[in-house]
């Protein structure tokens, strides 16, 4: 969807004297990205000094009415009620930034996109008729215009602070779109694929975590979604050649960012493939 349901809001530039208001919203999600904001312990006082935290139920019951200068949105859209609510939030937000894999690609709950939701519903709930849910989990950008999408499951604290600082200083956020390998090599980590034979999604995944898993000798799980030039099929070929079964290859692409276009296409390519 490309139209912006913006309400006419008075254009008041955030002056130094009047701090811009910040709202934090939750959709279908685990709250981990909101917690990342709360985990900015050393920076929280500076943040509270720079913005007025107007709506953040995860942190405080005190609510200041909108409109808001900056809305951070966590979670994906999975119910008809959420479709309506994101429209309202967009309308009362001057700037809207999505935080995390759910809000930017649909999250782990987008696994429903590959299956029959009615069947899930009937199996899980005693009275599925009480349930109103959509058959797809969609990112916020599928419903309203988003000013910036911050990746990660959860988002990285320093990247979140960078986005907030960039907003306050009216500059472009410095959020690179290259692969995790860049961060791995910069921090001097030994490549887990080459030196240990560990499957790793780092080459197709966007940086941002600081190569956290490879630095602890684990393969990358792809939490930050596809990098800007993701050769998912070449990596899949390497995984298959290393002995990974086709259904496993399908599953490594089908996690937190399963519904991102490059990962979705690649996982579907290996659906129903038989091991040779």
């Amino acid at each position: 969807m490309t139209t912006t349901p913006l309400l006419p809001v008075p254009h008041v530039p955030p002056a130094r004297a009047t701090r811009p208001t910040l709202a934090v919203w939750k959709f279908a999600s685990c709250d981990g990205c909101q917690l990342t904001l709360l985990n900015c312990e050393d920076e929280l006082m500076a943040l509270a000094g720079a913005v007025r935290i107007a709506y953040f139920p995860e942190a405080t019951r005190a609510v200041v009415d909108g409109p808001y200068d900056l809305s951070l949105v966590e979670g994906s859209v999975t119910t008809p009620e959420e479709v309506e609510r994101i429209g309202q939030i967009r309308a009362m937000s001057r700037h809207l930034v999505t935080i995390g894999a759910c809000a930017t690609t649909g999250g782990i709950q987008a696994l429903r996109n590959f299956a029959d939701v009615a069947e899930f519903r009937s199996v899980v709930y005693a009275h599925p008729e009480y349930l109103s849910t959509l058959d797809r989990s969609t990112p916020i950008s599928a419903h309203v215009t988003v000013d910036f999408e911050l990746r990660g499951c959860p988002v990285d604290k320093n990247q979140l602070l960078e986005v907030l600082a960039a907003y306050l200083q009216r500059r472009r956020p410095r959020i690179p779109t290259y692969s995790v390998c860049v961060e791995c090599k910069r921090r001097g980590a030994v490549c887990v694929t080459v030196a240990h034979g560990t499957p790793c999604l780092g080459p197709v995944t966007q940086a941002g975590c600081g190569a956290l898993c490879p630095a602890f000798a684990r393969g990358c799980y792809g939490c930050f979604g596809p990098q800007d030039s993701p050769n998912t099929s070449a990596l899949a070929d390497r995984l298959l050649a290393a002995g990974m079964a086709p259904d496993e290859v399908m599953r490594v692409y089908r996690t937190f960012n399963a519904a991102s276009e490059p990962f979705r296409r690649e996982s579907e390519r290996h659906e129903g493939e038989v091991s040779s």
Binding site: A46, A50, L164, L168, S179, C181, V182, K185, N231, A234
Partner: peptide, 27 residues
Amino acid sequence: RCLACTSCTLVCPTCFCTSVEDVADLT
């Protein structure tokens, strides 16, 4: 076949390309 992951250039002992980044804190 290329993953465009940058590993070759970052382990190359002669590759010298860099980027200059400005960082500012919240305040």
